[in-house]
Simulated scan of single mutants.
Amino acid sequence: MSPLCLLRALTFGALAMLAAPAHAETLDKVTFGTNWVAEAEHGGFFQAVADGTYKSYGLDVTIVPGGPNINNGILLVAGKLDFYMSANTLKSFDAVTNNVPLVTVAAIFQRDPQVFLVHPNPKVTKLEDLKPLTIFISKEGVAGYFQWMKNEFGFSDNKVKPYTFNAQPFLADKNSAMQGYVTSEPFVVEKQAGFKPTLILLADYGFDGYSTLIETRRDLIDKKPDLVQRFVDASIIGWYNYLYGNNKPANDLIKKLNPEMTDDVLANSVAKMKEYGIVDSGDSLRDGIGAMSEARVASFFDKMSRAGVVKRDIDFRKAYTLQFVNKGVGLDLRSKK
């Protein structure tokens, strides 16, 4: 995820949030692992801890930050965590492919924040315009969304160079594009290089997978559906409050857990999430944050299977459930502005 936090990644492992309520014995203890160090892209979860939302739902939640040397996804599979913040729908399909009993129960990001950054050029304004350029993409990106770009838009491997989460090769080559998250890399480039890059959001071109998912084990769904529902509902409320309310409690907690985080970075990330409808757009406008639909997942699976990213014969419906979302939770908290 965001390389903003790579400057000094947390090395003390799983840090518990010091938010245990006074009567913790009456609450259900829950552990939730993120997939990176604390940042605004996880803000709603931190908000629900910091402002007492989880507590009001009868939960004593400990958030376990991820990082470059921490694999919270494995801890979820091993039963060491109750919930995990998975990156995207492709990860959910991978779980099905490998017979891992994990299920997505909510999709916090309605739009995948994956973008390409381009040097300002009036001739490069849309995805197809990137074809003549050198494109810096990570190994994971090449194995995932770039296969879709090849299949749908005719991109070629011979223009790809490795992206190592360092913007300097992109900055040095005006005829290049670089992958990034709309909430992070563009801000870094603008500060470092003094120009505002052109952004091409893959979601605008049909890359319609969900991102920042709440994932859990199938056995927890079967044994404790009420706990799952309360965690999902409280997380949704946390996200509404983070985006549209006073998010200082969450940001203070994020900075405590990640000392390299700054107020300007947090403010930029929140602004971009709103501007591009990353969290609250599409189906969430009607069904609430976290919304998912069968048609949307089926559409994404069809695209990824045609591109050869996932096998056509897997039962992708095992990757998710709509049991806990689309209930309109928190809609009254949305900003009227």
Rank of each mutant, 00 (worst) to 15 (best):
L75W: 04
F231N: 07
Y163E: 12
T321K: 02
N251P: 07
V64P: 00
D157K: 04
E275N: 00
D287F: 14
V279C: 06
A291C: 01
G330F: 04
P249H: 01
Y84A: 02
G277W: 06
V105R: 01
E128S: 11
T11N: 14
K274Y: 01
T62P: 01
Y240W: 03
F155C: 06
V182P: 10
I108Y: 00
K55P: 01
G209L: 11
I237G: 05
M304N: 11
V103W: 03
P132G: 07
D226S: 08
Y163Q: 04
A267Q: 15
A307H: 04
E152S: 14
G238P: 02
S335T: 15
E215C: 04
L322E: 13
S2P: 12
Y240I: 12
A267V: 12
G33V: 02
S138Y: 05
L90Y: 02
S235D: 02
Q192C: 00
D222N: 09
S138H: 12
N151L: 00
T104D: 11
I135V: 13
A95N: 11
L27G: 01
V49S: 10
V124H: 00
M261E: 15
I70H: 01
T212Q: 11
P122I: 01
F324Q: 02
P113D: 05
K336E: 15
F207W: 15
G141T: 10
R286T: 14
V124C: 06
V61L: 01
N151I: 05
G73V: 09
E39I: 13
R8H: 11
Y54Q: 02
K123T: 13
G58S: 11
R8W: 05
T183L: 07
N158H: 11
Y145C: 03
R230K: 15
A107P: 00
T164G: 03
N175G: 02
K318G: 09
L199R: 09
S284H: 06
G33Q: 09
D264W: 06
T216S: 02
F195P: 12
A250W: 01
P225K: 02
L27E: 13
A48Q: 03
Y242C: 05
V30D: 10
Y276C: 06
P3T: 04
A234Q: 01
D226K: 14
A172F: 08
V309P: 00
T262C: 07
K191M: 07
L7D: 08
P122F: 09
Y242E: 05
P225C: 04
L253Q: 10
Y54M: 10
L322D: 12
Q114L: 15
T97D: 11
R286H: 13
A234L: 03
Y84P: 08
Q192S: 09
L4N: 07
E215V: 15
G245S: 00
F46Q: 08
D332H: 14
K29S: 14
N175A: 03
G209P: 08
A307S: 15
